[in-house]
Design a protein around this nucleic acid. Sequence first.
DNA 1: TTGAAAGCGCTAACAG
DNA 2: CTGTTAGCGCTTTCAA
Lengths: 339, 339
Amino acid sequence: MSKKVTIRDIAWLAGVSVTTVSQILNGKGERFSKKTQDKIFKLRDEYGYVPDFNARSLILRRSSSMIGVLVPNISSPFFGTFVEGVQEVAQHERMIPLIFSANRNAELEQNYLSQMLERSIDGLIIASATMTTDTIDKIIGARDVPYILFDQNYAQEGTRVLTDDYHGGELAAQHLADLGHRKIALLEPRELSENFTQRLTGFKDRLAKNNIKLDMAHDVVRTPLSRQGGYDAAEAVIQTGATAAFAGNDDMAIGLMRGLSERGIKVPDQVSVIGYDNIYLDEYVSPQLTTISQPITDLGIGAAKMLLNKIHSDQTQEQIQRFPVELIQRQSTARLHEA
Amino acid sequence: MSKKVTIRDIAWLAGVSVTTVSQILNGKGERFSKKTQDKIFKLRDEYGYVPDFNARSLILRRSSSMIGVLVPNISSPFFGTFVEGVQEVAQHERMIPLIFSANRNAELEQNYLSQMLERSIDGLIIASATMTTDTIDKIIGARDVPYILFDQNYAQEGTRVLTDDYHGGELAAQHLADLGHRKIALLEPRELSENFTQRLTGFKDRLAKNNIKLDMAHDVVRTPLSRQGGYDAAEAVIQTGATAAFAGNDDMAIGLMRGLSERGIKVPDQVSVIGYDNIYLDEYVSPQLTTISQPITDLGIGAAKMLLNKIHSDQTQEQIQRFPVELIQRQSTARLHEA
DNA sequence: TTGAAAGCGCTAACAG
DNA sequence: CTGTTAGCGCTTTCAA
């Protein structure tokens, strides 16, 4: 373990005091001779001196300059993209994002949360279905660490970014109705977080406006929120006799398409499928997936900006930022063939 | 911004010294009276005291318990999965991974690297094509922060995890040869990092053993390492007149398939396509992509374990851990139709 | 132009 | 049983 070079080492090497080194390296060295300054800079580069962040923030009472980001799974295109948006903003302010993929495991999430708190992060972005604001507040406790909720949270309150899920659901429903479908199946995740509730409600409401009714007992298939879940639901969807299906997100939709195709059902000729999210994968599956688009990177950017804003301004007022959704029509939906 | 309660506050409130508080709170308080202990604990809870991580690690010279992870893009299935593997191991040892997605931007990478170093991370996992060990060593400087190289690094030295890229290339070549293909195109990224060089060399060598020769001038298409790159290369591949193509990775292969299909070329009927990596996406594109599989999560786990090992044992000896590859045959390759 | 000294919040000898 | 003292590596008065 070769010792780390400290400011003292540099000072000693240069034959000056630590003050001198500190001042110069912090850009407050106008008052020192050019010669000294050069010497210090040279030494720093030569020995690869880097100030110790701990010591520094200890004295400067500066924050840790870290923000926590809790997502269900970083390997999914959706959250991967989201996180990149967050990182982009964070980097811009020299904040370090602590990214945790908690796999929808409540215990793990709370674990990560505590760990981040110990390290006095400045703020949090939480995308979690398993935690309520109550749980979060309890863990955060007395300190005031601001946080932004994102997506899939039951929260009825709290500052957060969101998209118009209700409207997204409406768009999906209208699209299928416009194509002439009357018998429609719905793929729901097992646990309905707020955003899913919204988009599914919008969907149902709009169907109703088109005089299409959804039989809650038979037309709704509940399955895990994953490609595998969609895949496994194929049989159930076929059983409903629907000519079109709306999946709660693209992952499920893609899995469903594959399941249908393996059972000899042609998409979209026999069954139209529409998803939700517009992950980049949609363009690469076959047929390309029709979906409702959410501006994923923008959501990440928006969440991060809001958080930083909250951190800096210290305002407690609850805010909500809403992002638009739109229908992206591709090849997985088609006009109903009259039988 | 409620001020933080310090150990001194607690000590003052309890009417004892800071030592007492420190000792008790750190589980070294057997020697103190039960009464005092209880009082301290109660006060801590009441005021929500949490030790300052900075001050703590400053004095304990305890590591930050953070490891840095530098990847090109976290939103890709490949690196997303890799990172999850890393995180799994890290969490197990209560280490926090600092994950950075540097987008193959050299300046950004170095930036992130410095930031991590400032925070005295305990170790690094670097997946970067743009940095050589020289650059890395320079930035790391005198400190000895152990690091593991992963994938795509030019490095001819340094502890690292890797897969047998050469053999992977061979497998791909043999597969195409076995299917009767004689005229084969190769999709290479613009910048050839070590692993690509290996897999492409293995590929060429094995073709040669099968008496198939690759015309470097015409059969090799260079294109960016991305789906878009593969997509854009479709025309060039068609021009080569090849009946099969090997893409340097799955992303390129998937893009290529789409490009071909949009130009009316049927895969695999007219052109077989084989990729490399076995990202989960492969099963969801159509036709499903034949590829050479790398155990991505295992690579992440392996890299993290090696790093932790290196951190703890303080051994300087260079190590290499090699992971197996295998051919995964799906639907994008087929026996050559005799014309 | 420079440096000595104080101190950030905490822990760890070493004395009582 | 408990407190005193001495720092960790750094920045910042304040004095020279």
